[in-house]
Design a protein around this nucleic acid. Structure first.
Lengths: 194, 194
DNA sequence: TGCCACGACTTGACACTATCAAGTTTTGCG
DNA sequence: CGCAAAACTTGATAGTGTCAAGTCGTGGCA
């Protein structure tokens, strides 16, 4: 409960981004909502855009945890399908984080080695999952290509659902799940036969 | 040459978005650069965010034209690969447009039926190309699933290259082309065997 | 020709924003 | 206790979107 101002600011920003996108985010408004002076947040973040690094950091940590977790019973047995479903589920459940994480124009990763490392870790988790999928026989280049394919597919699906035109086309959750599963299944067929 | 103020403003905005992302785009700055008063652009666009609709409109038109064009000799004969390559090429060559087109939080399509229509047309073009790919035998649902898969793959690849972590990993153009082709080829294998 | 309505643009104002530069309060700790 | 550093406030400045009025030029019509 006893949330520090720093935490309050981050979670308020995440909520704003989830609801309205990152563009109009106002430090002063957040400060006012938190009942502190307009300058208080700057003590924790230096400048406005630094908060995006912080959001991305949180996001990448949770993302890696989600993607790397052992398979549950209620999940698809096919790894590729499972990864896609988790990817999309993460994006929807953490819209505020997701919208920031992959935006190089928002998070200046070079300014925050910690966020950079979290991003690298997340990619490594993905790579590990994919190499499990294709088996040990494949070359490192082959794994890289397949990881990129898997990643692109899941990422495209997630962004098109969250920000793009797919949002309206598949409003119902059941529709979305079925679509994601179908799409991932097709891709899995293509990838497995390396 | 005799560019109207309206055209000047749009192209300046597109350039800004390509270089810096959409966030800090300033109407006043654009007006100053064009040598007009700070209020002049408002005469053409009403409010700031309306310009994103205009950028998206331009983008969707060019996008549909690019994706729907007949195959050239120097392109891959596999439709799926060709579409992916064109998609990524469009995104890179029209970064300023692409960064706006699929952002529902930026373009309020409901305010601009014309842009909405252009977006629908673009999707229809994609759908037509995919149905050519899977053949006449497939059901409409199957085509839809495959179109979504194709679209997601290409879109994910493009956004990860433009805004995300793939940008640094594949700096050289030759690397990028090879990667896009490999990835698309794997996906094509999966999709063709409907 | 005169005039006048309308589009294109300007000027001025207002509330809002990020951010610099100081202050003041709070808090942890020797 | 005392004090230093962290946490926060107050004030000012420059830049922003946008409302509300102007001004200016041009085409069309009596």
């Amino acid at each position: 409960m006893a949330q520090s101002l720093r935490e309050k600011v981050i979670s308020a920003a995440v909520k704003y981004v989830a609801d309205n996108g990152p563009d109009g985010l106002s430090f002063r408004q957040i400060a006012a909502d938190a009942g502190v002076s307009h300058q208080a947040p700057y003590h924790h973040f230096g400048h406005r855009s630094a908060i995006f690094n912080e959001i991305a950091l949180e996001g990448f940590k949770k993302f890696a945890a989600d993607m790397g977790a052992p398979a549950r019973d209620d999940e698809d047995s096919e790894i590729c399908v499972r990864l896609c479903e988790r990817y999309v589920a993460f994006a929807i459940a953490n819209k505020g984080h997701f919208r920031v994480m992959f935006r190089a124009d928002l998070c200046h990763l070079h300014e925050s080695p910690e966020t950079q490392k979290a991003a690298d870790d997340a990619f490594a988790t993905l790579l590990a999952a994919v190499s499990e999928m294709v088996g040990d026989s494949a070359s490192i280049d082959e794994i890289r290509v397949q990881a990129t394919a898997m990643w692109s597919l899941a990422h495209g699906l997630a962004t098109l659902i969250i920000d793009g035109p797919l949002e309206k086309k598949i409003g119902r959750v059941s529709d979305r799940r079925a679509l994601v599963r179908s799409v991932a299944q097709r891709a899995a067929d293509g990838l497995r036969r390396a």
